[in-house]
Simulated assay, not measured.
Amino acid sequence: MNELRVAAYAVCVREEQILLARWVARDGVKRWTLPGGGMDHGEDPLETVVREVEEETGYASEVTALLGLHTDVLRRPRKLGADAELHSLRIVYAGRITGGGLRNETDGSTDLACWHPLDAVTGLERVDLVDIGLELWRTRPPVGRVAGNGQ
């Protein structure tokens, strides 16, 4: 069975630091990621990213720009031993913190949120989306894609 997952993420940078959330994989491995996540049925992507930033970090935010899209297709094991192809479509926005206070998510897919210096990101255990999001944020490509876009 094939699946499509549409998600929205925010690149929030202030004072040379980026806001990241630590994602906990099903196998318990923890990696830093951009705050964001899957769209609920009928939800607008802008609402998704604002909701997800608040859920994962405690901050109220607003979208300031659409940075681009990232797509990837990967095989994932499913119940009863069957594999499925997951087509992941990620919408990446630039975001700005407008209120709230930093806190960790409870009972979610992330367990920690914090600001990291931009120059320290390469030393973090992170998912590829962090690098893709930063590249989109830095270069603002006219077509909203960077090299290595899963294609």
Score class of each variant (00 low, 15 high):
H87E: 14
V13K: 02
A60Q: 13
Y9V: 07
W137H: 07
L46E: 03
D119I: 10
L80E: 15
E3R: 14
D128P: 12
E135L: 12
A147H: 07
H116W: 13
A65Q: 11
P45W: 04
R31Y: 05
L66R: 09
G58T: 05
C114P: 12
D131K: 05
A147K: 06
D44K: 04
L102G: 10
P141E: 11
I91Y: 03
E3Y: 10
V73R: 15
R75D: 14
R5I: 08
T48E: 04
T110M: 06
G36Y: 00
L129I: 10
E15T: 08
E62V: 07
N104M: 03
D107Q: 11
V73I: 15
R90A: 09
A25V: 03
L112Q: 05
I132A: 08
Y93A: 00
R51A: 02
L86R: 07
A65F: 09
W32K: 03
R51F: 10
A82Q: 13
T33N: 10
V63K: 00
V13N: 05
E54Y: 13
R126A: 08
G81M: 06
L89W: 08
M1I: 08
Y9R: 03
W115E: 01
T48L: 04
S88G: 13
V50A: 04
L4I: 15
D119T: 08
D107A: 14
E55P: 11
E15Y: 11
R103H: 07
H116G: 05
R140I: 11
E125N: 15
R14T: 10
I91P: 03
R140G: 10
P35T: 05
A84N: 07
R76Q: 14
A120N: 03
A10W: 05
R145F: 07
A21P: 08
M39S: 11
P35R: 00
E16Q: 12
P141Y: 09
S61I: 03
E55L: 07
D40Y: 14
R22S: 02
A94K: 00
L134K: 01
V121Q: 00
Q151G: 06
E135A: 15
L134G: 01
G100W: 01
D40E: 15
S61G: 08
V29D: 15
R5F: 03
I132W: 00
L34M: 03
E47I: 07
D131P: 06
L66I: 13
A82C: 12
E47V: 10
A8M: 06
A25Q: 10
D119L: 10
M1D: 13
H41Q: 15
D83N: 12
E54I: 02
Y9Q: 04
N2V: 11
G95L: 01
T71A: 15
D44M: 08
G38R: 05
G148H: 02
L80P: 08
G28N: 06
D107K: 08
H116F: 15
L19G: 02
E52N: 04
V24R: 02
Y9W: 11
D119Y: 11
E62H: 07
Q17H: 12
T57Q: 02
T122P: 14
T122A: 14
W32M: 01
L80M: 13
H87L: 10
R22P: 09
L67W: 06
I91V: 12
G133D: 04
G101V: 08
G36V: 01
P77F: 06
